[in-house]
């Protein structure tokens, strides 16, 4: 990871994503342990945020969140899509939560 040339835009957004992810965990998950992994997998960067907390039903939560105009996961998704990346959440009640984010680190050639 050290020699990777990442645009400052991607860098700051990854930083924010980790921050938001940790904040969500602190606020909701009641987790004892959090693992963050950042792996270069050309041409992408993979970010994983996993906790062993109480988990949730992803589908229900996301639907509810959009109705209630809640920010947490939505704003993370927004950030990821701005970076042309993708985000997946895997969670079940009582089984913790895994957030998988993958974003390209190479600037795409335009035009």
């Amino acid at each position: 990871m050290d020699d990777l040339k990442i645009s400052s835009n991607t860098e700051i957004n990854l930083y924010r994503l980790i921050q938001e992810g940790l904040w969500n965990i602190k606020k909701h998950a009641e987790a004892a342990k959090v693992t963050i992994k950042l792996v270069a997998s050309f041409p992408n960067i993979i970010l994983r945020i996993e906790d062993d907390g109480k988990g949730f039903n992803v589908k229900e939560r996301l639907t509810a969140a959009s109705k209630e105009k809640r920010m947490g996961l939505r704003s993370m998704e927004e950030r990821v899509s701005l970076l042309d990346g993708k985000m997946k959440i895997h969670s079940r009640p009582k089984e913790g939560t895994k957030v998988f984010i993958e974003v390209p680190y190479k600037e795409k050639k335009r035009g």
């Binding site: 992994k37 950042l38 792996v39 994983r48 997946k88 895997h90 895994k98 998988f100």
Partner: peptide, 12 residues
């Protein structure tokens, strides 16, 4: 182990 792949997320 590195986090490149994850079996749980495959299934989704």
């Amino acid at each position: 182990k590195l986090g490149l792949i994850d079996v749980d997320l495959w299934k989704d």
